[in-house]
Nucleic acid binder design. Structure first.
Lengths: 154, 154
DNA sequence: TAAGATTGTGGGTAGTTGTGGGTAATTTCC
DNA sequence: GGAAATTACCCACAACTACCCACAATCTTA
C-alpha cells in the first residue's frame, strides 16, 4: 500500500496539544524517503494555512530560489517571503512535529488541526478557516476550474 | 475470457460490513494489472458516490497534479479538492477494501453497496441514491446525449 | 452428481497509531 | 553564573486498524 515516495494525499483531523505539537499522519511518514532524515520544512502557506515540505523537496525549492536574480524587485520580495518563515523540524518518536507559536498564530490554529495531503506537500488548517475558504472559492473560480478539469482527466 | 487490464464493466450488489469493508468483485480483481500491487485509490466521486481507481491510474492523475504550481490560487484549490478525499487501500486476503467513515457518509452508504464498473474506474453507490439520480437524468440529458453521439459510436 | 475450488461475509486478535503528560537537557535572560 | 523558561526525549495508555481464521454459498470440473 505504498504510493510514490514523498507524496501525500488524504485528509486527517488531529489535535494540537498544549506544547504546539501535531501528529504527522502515519501514512505520510511512511511515504517519506530515507534521505529526508525524518525532517520536514515548515513555513507559511499562501492561503492562511501552514505548508509542510519533506526536506528534499524543500532543498529543490531552495535551489530554484537561488536562481532568481535579486535585480528584480518581485524576485526579492518572493524570495524573502518564502525563506523568512521557513524552519526545519524533525518529528519525534511518536511522529509529531512542533509548530512555532508564530506559525500557529498565522494559521489561527486552536485545538483542532486539519491535515491535508497536497501531493508534493502537506497543509495544516484550522478547520473553520478551510470551510470559509472553500465556500469563497466555490463560486469565484467556476470557469477557471472547468478549464483545469479539461486538462486533467479524472 | 479476460478483458483489457485495469478495465471494469458490470454491476454488482454487495454488502458493507460493520467495519466499513466492501468486497471488490472478483472479476475486477482479476483485471487489475500486477503493478497496482492489489491497491486502489478511493475518493469522492462527482455524483454522490465513491470513485475507486486502480493505483496506476491514480498515479497518472497525481503526476498531473504535481505539475500545477501552487503560485496560482486556482491550482491550489484544485489540487486540494482532488487530493484531500483520496486514500489508498489495498484489498485484504478476502478481496475487500476498507472505506473511510468520511467517504461512507458522503456516499450515504448503509448496508447495501452497488458496485459499478466505469471502464477506467469503479463507482460505489447507495442503491437508492443511484435510482434517484437515474430518474433525474433521464429527461434532462436527451439533448446532451445527442452531442455525445458525435463522439462515440455505439 | 459429487468433490473441490472460489467467492462473499462475519468476527477475533495482535500490532500500530494518536494523545497526554513527565523528566532531563538545553537555551535564555538577568 | 545561576535561575527560569523552553525544548527535546521518553514512557504510558486507549482507540483503532490490519491481518488472520472460519464458514456458508456458489461455481467449476471431472
Amino acid at each position: 500500500m505504498t504510493l510514490t515516495n514523498n507524496t501525500f494525499i488524504g485528509e486527517y483531523a488531529y489535535s494540537l496539544d498544549s506544547k504546539g505539537r501535531v501528529n504527522v499522519p502515519a501514512k505520510f511518514r511512511q511515504s517519506l524517503s530515507d534521505d529526508n532524515e525524518n525532517t520536514f520544512v515548515i513555513t507559511r502557506g499562501m492561503d492562511t494555512c501552514i505548508w509542510v515540505y519533506p526536506m528534499v523537496q524543500w532543498l529543490d525549492i531552495e535551489s530554484n530560489l537561488r536562481n532568481l536574480s535579486s535585480l528584480s524587485k518581485i524576485n526579492r520580495t518572493f524570495v524573502r517571503n518564502t525563506a523568512r518563515y521557513a524552519s526545519p523540524s524533525t518529528y519525534d518518536k511518536q511522529g509529531r512535529i512542533t509548530l512555532t507559536p508564530s506559525l500557529i498564530e498565522y494559521a489561527g490554529l486552536e485545538k483542532e488541526a486539519l491535515i491535508i495531503g497536497m501531493v508534493n506537500k502537506i497543509e495544516i488548517w484550522n478547520p473553520d478557516r478551510l470551510n470559509e475558504t472553500d465556500e469563497q472559492s466555490m463560486e469565484i473560480d467556476a470557469a477557471a476550474y472547468d478549464d483545469l478539469a479539461d486538462k486533467i482527466i479524472l
